[in-house]
Design a protein around this nucleic acid. Structure first.
Lengths: 143, 143
DNA sequence: TATTTTTACTTTCAAAACAAAAGTAATATT
DNA sequence: AATATTACTTTTGTTTTGAAAGTAAAAATA
């Protein structure tokens, strides 16, 4: 599934996909919070409504930014995981963190400020390592 | 003016500010399109409605991501320009470009693909140079 | 100088998206 | 067997959006 792109500008197209208040928060929770189930996401501190959560998860799956699966030991639990396309969002998320850390610093919580500080020590290295970590997590699952 | 932040997470807070389909497009047009007037923005290829444009410009000014001014030779024309806080969005915009160039490549227009290629040659250098360029443009204006 | 055009909006209104709450069906736990 | 949990869907009211038309002041043109 493709969204209807407003134009062929890459910025505009990226926003057609992630230009809302919730999509990247779900990605955040998968990247940094180890979250993977509907319940996990619905417990996020920002209190996403279940209807919106369901629609976003569906869309993310359709866009192949995440995939939907099950676990062998439990038939009820649905697990979502990042795809490579989703993991590739890491640099964007990182820049959002850095911008907020710099421009809204008084408002950002301390653990996240620490993370930002860490990222700044060597940004390319951080991205590379963390990407590898996320990729290894999904390749684990396919064994 | 501050938006009402949903949490103290920097990602969430960044999205409280720029998590919509239009805000970063206005920034884009200022950064890469040399646009500065209401009419300029309203001519964008994505066809923003004037009501939404007006509300976004107002919000961006309140948030100090852009500033509102006039020019000496004309009393009617209102010119908007990026502030440092707004210029600092460049790395985010750059990562949006790179993500789309990689993940939506068939859809992205050629000039933008060229830009992406260029950025990739040396990303930190590009950001540094382009930031300096944008900063010099605004310091020009204050002479 | 009078008229037209332009600029920067505001207003209106229907449609779409969102938020909060409650409901449901299948599965899992006690 | 009864209860609880998970992953949603549905409903309903509110907010936001999008398209279009309208307005006031300034500027360009006749």
């Amino acid at each position: 599934m493709e969204p209807t792109f407003r134009s062929s500008c890459p910025i505009s197209s990226a926003l057609d996909i992630m230009g809302d208040k919730w999509t990247l928060l779900i990605i955040r929770d998968m990247m940094f919070g180890g979250k993977s189930t509907f319940k996990d996401f619905s417990n996020a501190q920002e209190k996403i409504a279940t209807g919106i959560l369901a629609s976003r998860l569906k869309r993310l799956v359709e866009l192949s930014l995440i995939s939907k699966g099950t676990i062998p030991e439990n038939k009820k639990t649905v697990v979502y995981s990042l795809t490579e396309k989703g993991i590739d969002l890491l640099p964007i998320v990182v820049e959002l963190i850095l911008w907020s850390d710099k421009q809204l610093r008084d408002h950002v919580n301390q653990p996240m400020r620490e993370l930002a500080k860490n990222i700044r020590k060597d940004k390319p290295k951080f991205i590379e390592r963390y990407t590898r970590k996320l990729l290894s997590e999904i390749s684990e699952r396919h064994k």
